[in-house]
Each structure stands twice: as structure tokens, then as C-alpha cells.
Design a protein around this nucleic acid. Structure first.
Lengths: 220, 220
DNA sequence: CCCGGCCTCCCCCGCACGGGGGAGCAGGTC
DNA sequence: GACCTGCTCCCCCGTGCGGGGGAGGCCGGG
């Protein structure tokens, strides 16, 4: 169900950045990384991404050639989001002509990047960065607690249950949570049980792990 | 005690990448970010970083001018690590002449980046990328479980205790851990108790939280 | 109006968890 | 030899945790 993304860029730093930005979203999953265009095709066959975030300028095989090769040789190819540093990069237009579905500037804000991936995954095209900014502006916040809200919605946690999960993820016992929320411990137990059931967790430790893994709470 | 790092780069993606790579280390802390050279000086005064990781090519005020300004106007200035895309960038040598302490290629592997920051923080200089690679080669692995080792050393967890903590952080019960490690449940309980004591955790949930917060295990 | 969701609280019950001991054994160090 | 550390396993014991029920009050929508 989550959007599966493959990152292709020769700079590990850019890959790490994209990964950090995208993995913070519970509905986006980074399923692989490649450092150059040549490695893309076998990797796509293997991990079957929905979206490939591809740099244009790469050694061995650049983004344009990789895009062409991908669309030519892979059945049911993923959608391709071209990533570039420069606003007016003739390479980008080459890539788009080769079949890429949109492009994204590396200096885009995280919320824009996330939005671009989601849109591309949904079949939309992003041919002009202006449209990216415009659409991303709808979100307003920097993506801070969007992940949290998404988890609430996906697991259909109620507000109270989300509150309890957050306190669990800070290491509080049921009694401490009860004191904090000014309710009885039995009430907390009810909420905790509901959280465990909805998250498919066996105990509070597993629930907290899920909270971290989903980005519902973030380390640091 | 941790190395305090300020990130200066016009691309949010690169900042996010550096942050992801550096924050994974328990002894490195990213204390701030700036998008251009003009914002650096007040920020340095405010957050007092040990190291500034600075892009050379930036709008408004580039890395060279920012370096000069920093060394000229700030008392007890931080050490400056210049970050660049290109191997032979005359701007870099300008920056080094301006007083920067070393430079780093953006395409460096995470382990190299981390190592560069540590060395710079210790007062070493990194003037040639070859030396970076050479020194980084000592580490061997890609930086993957270095954070884990650091936690082991800091909390003085034994190897076995670290193994148990890792399994706890995957949601396993004592019995499941015992089965996995092919030992008795009583043995696991001993290790778990030792882990809790050394981490200052009251229960396994708090221990797992510490594991996530310290980077001993990473989400995703 | 009544239904359903949410929050609140209650009961009983079993067990895994964690604390506090102790102990044997291998591997090193002094 | 004595000594320490790490790994292994054992005992007892209290309790916090989680499962399975049930129940009342509140509110908003059909």
C-alpha cells in the first residue's frame, strides 16, 4: 500500500537526504538505492518500485539513458521523477522527452519533495517546478506532525489513543500515564489495549517500536 | 561533549543528508542549519558550533566570503569544513586560503563524512581528499554499525548484552530471545537485567526507547 | 428519537517481567 | 596461584501488564 520509491543518485549524501525526507512519511517507503544508471534496471526488476527518483547527471549511464532503457526493457515500468540541481537544465527536458513523468529541484523543501513523490505515484505529472510549489503550499506546515496524523488515520487511533501511545513511547507506565492524563489506571489500560489491538502489537514495547518505525514519534 | 555541527548549504536536501548521516552518530550533534552564507555569523554566535560544514557555492554570500567573515568577526571561531561537489574546485582552494580547515566531497561515503567531521573537530586538517579516504578506510564498514558500537562502549554493554538489546528492539519476548540465541530464558533475563541497569531503564520499553534515541537501532 | 463511537471505569485472571540473590565455568590478567 | 569479567543457569517473589469481559455517560448523525 505505501508508495515504493527507488533512489538513483551518484551522491550518497543526496540519497541519504531523500531517504530521510521520504522515510519520515508513513505512506512512503524507500525500497532501494543505486549510485548510477547502469544499476537501475536489474534493481527495478528486483524491488518493483512505484516511483524512481533519478538524478540526471550520473557517471556510466545518465538519467536520460537510464530512463529510456527502463521504459524500453522493463514490463510495467515504474514512474520516473527526475531530480536535478538546476532550474534550466537541458538534460532534464531530454529526460522528460525520454519518458520521465516529472522533475524536481534538489533545492526543493522537504514538503515539496514528499508531495512530488505522492503526485507522481498517483499518476500525476509534474512538468514545471512552479506547480510543485503551488501544490506543496497547500500543506502549510513543514511536514512536522503530518506523519503522526497519518498514522492516526491509518490505524484509526482515536485522539486519546494517540496521546496514550505518545506517552508509552516516552517510557511511561500505565500508572504514570494515568496520573499525567488525570484518569484512572483502568482507563489507561483500556486505551493501551485498544492501541495494541489496532497496531497489531503484542505488548507496549512492540507498540513503541511501531511508533518509531512509522515516524509517529521521531528519535532526537 | 558531543561534536556540535552547523550545516550551511543552500540545498535543503544536502542539509537533510548531512543531518541524517551525522545524527546517526551518538557523539555528533547537528545544532543548526543555514541556507546561505549571510545567515551563518549570527547563527554561529547563537549556537556556538564546534564545526561548520559549509558549502562553497551559495547565493548571497558564498562559502569563501562566509569563512573570511566568520574568522574575522567571531571570537573563538568554529573550525570550518568546506563541502563541495567537484574534485578540482578553485573555489575550495580559495576557501582554504581564507582559513577553512579542510574540505569534503559531497559524493563521499557516510563513513568518510563522519570521519571528516570528527577529525576536524579534533583539530586535524583535511586538505586532500586522498587522506580522507585513507583514514576512512581504517573503519572498513560503511558506518552502519559504528553507532551501535559507540553505544556499546559508552554504556559498557557487553557483546551479548548488545545482541539482546537489539532483539528487544525488534519486539521479541524473553522466551523468543532465548530461542533465537539458543540459551535458557533465565540467561536472557540476566542479560536483560544487565542492559536495564546499564542503560538506566526501568523496563524493556524504556531500554528500546534509549536504543532508538541513541541511534543504536535506526527506524526503517 | 435511537444508534454508534468515544471516553471513562470496573471486575477477574494468568503470566511474563523484573528484582535480588547465588553459582559454575571459561577466558584472560596480575 | 589468585583474580576478574563475561556467559550461562538456577531459585524465590511481587507486581505490572495484558486479555476478556461488562457498564455508564456524552455527543453527534441518521
Amino acid at each position: 500500500m505505501p508508495v515504493r520509491v527507488l533512489l538513483v543518485d551518484d551522491e550518497p549524501l543526496v540519497r541519504a537526504g531523500l531517504r530521510a525526507v521520504l522515510e519520515a512519511q508513513p505512506d512512503i517507503e524507500v525500497v532501494g538505492e543505486a549510485a548510477d544508471g547502469a544499476a537501475v534496471i536489474p534493481l527495478v526488476r528486483q524491488v518493483r518500485p512505484d516511483v524512481v527518483a533519478m538524478d540526471v547527471r550520473m557517471p556510466l549511464l545518465d538519467g536520460i539513458e537510464a530512463t529510456r532503457a527502463l521504459l524500453r526493457t522493463v514490463a510495467d515500468p515504474p514512474r520516473i521523477l527526475v531530480v536535478t540541481t538546476f532550474e534550466n537544465d537541458e538534460y532534464v527536458y531530454e529526460a522528460l522527452r525520454a519518458g520521465a513523468d516529472g522533475f524536481l529541484l534538489k533545492r526543493a523543501r522537504p514538503a515539496e519533495i514528499v508531495h512530488a513523490v505522492r503526485l507522481i505515484a498517483e499518476g500525476e505529472s509534474l512538468l514545471f517546478p512552479a506547480s510543485v510549489r503551488q501544490l506543496a503550499a497547500e500543506y502549510g506546515d513543514g511536514g512536522g506532525n503530518r506523519a503522526a496524523r497519518a498514522l492516526l488515520e491509518r490505524a484509526r487511533l482515536t485522539e486519546r489513543e494517540g496521546e496514550v501511545l505518545r506517552l508509552m513511547a516516552r517510557g511511561l507506565s500505565n500508572a504514570e500515564i494515568a496520573a499525567r492524563l488525570v484518569v484512572g489506571t483502568e482507563t489507561v489500560k483500556s486505551h493501551v489495549s485498544a492501541v495494541l489491538a489496532k497496531l497489531g502489537a503484542r505488548d507496549r514495547t512492540q507498540a513503541v517500536i511501531t511508533a518509531y518505525e512509522s515516524g509517529f514519534v521521531a528519535p532526537g
